[in-house]
Computed example of a mutant assay.
Amino acid sequence: MTDDARKAGGEARAAKLSAERRREIAKKAADSRWAKEGGLPKALFGSEESPLMIGDIPIDCYVLEDGRRVLTQESFLVAMGRAAKAKGGHGVRTSVDKTPPFLAASNLKPLIEKEVSGSTKAIEFLSTNGARVWGFPAELLPQTCRVYLAARDQGLLHYTQHHVAERADILVRALASVGIAALVDEATGYQEVRDRKALSALLDQYINQELAAWAKRFPDEFYRQMFRLRDWQYPTASGAKPGVVGKYTTDIVYDRLAPGIVKELERVNPKNEKGNRRAKHHQFLTEDVGHPALAQHLHAVIGLMRASSTWDQFKDLLDRAFPRKGDTLRLEID
């Protein structure tokens, strides 16, 4: 076959392809050329069709030809509770000083040297299907979690970072639990016969347990009404709540749930030397009794708040309807 014939045949086949298919073929060809010119590492294992599942979040992960384990950039960010894309739809990648933006906040920098080892630089590689992908080292995920948890323990978090710290807490607990299972499997040889998705399923189980523990129990309306009655701006400019809100919550809620409950919660969930607790009190309430009782009490309390015009009026109604456990009931005296 002559070159002209080959060219004509190729053009005829190309004409039959859809525009999307032609773009896909062109992209793969360009990626292949770039890999040869730029020396991009290639993934030998991994696929978007079989991601690691963390709760209901799919984490696309790969093992590169040089042995590095990587998580795709989008998966990494979503796992941390951040948007998969930065504003404008662009990826996050790495800043000039090789620190990813999710670690570049000034309040986190003092903790990075202690909690992060190895590279934090984004990695560009070819996935198993030949697509160019940006990712981060897999070991950076638990290390990043530890940075946010250390910042939380030291009271360094900005209010916009609290949700990331909560997600980090969930991830660290779950990954630690699955990590010991993987080590046992390797030591006993069970890894050779277990189902390939067994660890992922175990991780999913732990994640669901942790998510349940972190489930939001206090509706925003509770705080909105409290701020209204105290004549405070809601939300505050910083997003943080005044320190006295914790004392109000203890008085309005926990003191009135059951006798001795505050003392027991403070025993199992004590403050550290910095005055912070490792968890929220409601996380120690039981699912079958404690949480339903909390929800019922909050529903009634919010109703009293809405019916009140002042803080004193609300407290008077609260004391009548839900006296503190152990208090003597007030009697009406003419």
Rank of each mutant, 00 (worst) to 15 (best):
L77W: 05
E266D: 09
A168M: 06
E65I: 02
T249F: 08
L157Y: 05
K271G: 09
Y248H: 04
V70A: 03
L317P: 00
T188I: 10
L183K: 14
A240G: 10
R230S: 10
K114V: 06
G130L: 11
G326K: 12
A150I: 09
G243I: 10
K109H: 01
M53E: 07
G67H: 06
R330C: 06
L108W: 02
K274P: 02
V262N: 02
P235M: 12
K197N: 14
F322H: 08
S18T: 15
D3M: 00
R173M: 08
L171I: 06
G89Y: 14
V301P: 01
L141P: 01
D316S: 06
F222G: 01
Q225C: 11
E24H: 15
G189L: 07
T310V: 03
V147T: 03
H158A: 04
M80I: 04
F76A: 02
F45H: 10
R13D: 11
A19G: 15
E11R: 13
L103A: 02
E221Q: 07
K241I: 06
R278A: 14
R146Q: 12
K315T: 09
Y148S: 03
T144Y: 02
T128C: 08
E48S: 15
D185Y: 10
E124S: 09
D220T: 14
A168D: 10
T249D: 11
A122I: 01
N272H: 10
L77N: 01
E37D: 11
T160Y: 05
C61Y: 11
L156W: 06
E24G: 01
V147A: 01
D312N: 05
G290P: 15
I59F: 02
S75G: 10
Q143I: 02
P235C: 08
H281W: 05
V262L: 01
H162W: 12
R256H: 12
A19E: 15
Q143Y: 00
T144W: 09
S177C: 14
D66Q: 13
L203K: 00
V262S: 03
A8Y: 01
V147F: 12
A151F: 07
A138T: 03
R132F: 12
